[in-house]
């Protein structure tokens, strides 16, 4: 597994650039991972991130996009504004979770 220095921490990433250990995540890492994909995190992003991390902890998998929009208090349109380059993956990416397996 490749490692990278993100926000001063040595972080292990999988082949797709997702963190392999969600426990190693912190807010500074989220900020830098978001910046690398051109996103500046806002309060709305944090709301999504908090839901994703909580849900992943409970369910053992990263939530799919529709699950986020049904439960995190953000609309589908919001998600595309927050993560224009692909809300299906990027929410999990900045949340330090594995790539979601969901189709919707």
């Amino acid at each position: 597994m490749p490692t990278e220095t993100i926000a001063g921490h040595t972080i292990e990433l999988d082949a797709n650039g997702f963190m392999t250990d969600a426990a190693a995540w912190n807010r500074e890492i989220a900020l830098e991972m978001a910046a690398r994909v051109g996103i500046e995190l806002t309060d709305k992003h944090w709301k999504v991130i908090e839901f994703c991390r909580k849900d992943a902890k409970e369910k053992g998998v990263a939530p799919g996009l529709r699950r986020i929009t049904k439960n995190a208090g953000v609309s589908m349109r919001d998600m595309y504004q927050l993560f224009p380059k692909g809300p299906g993956k990027l929410a999990a990416l900045v949340s330090g979770l594995p790539k979601p397996k969901s189709c919707v």
Binding site: K85, G86, P87, K89, V104
Partner: peptide, 11 residues
């Protein structure tokens, strides 16, 4: 529909 939506989901 699912494939079109999945395309959007990955940008």
């Amino acid at each position: 529909l699912i494939l079109a939506n999945a395309a959007r989901m990955v940008g």
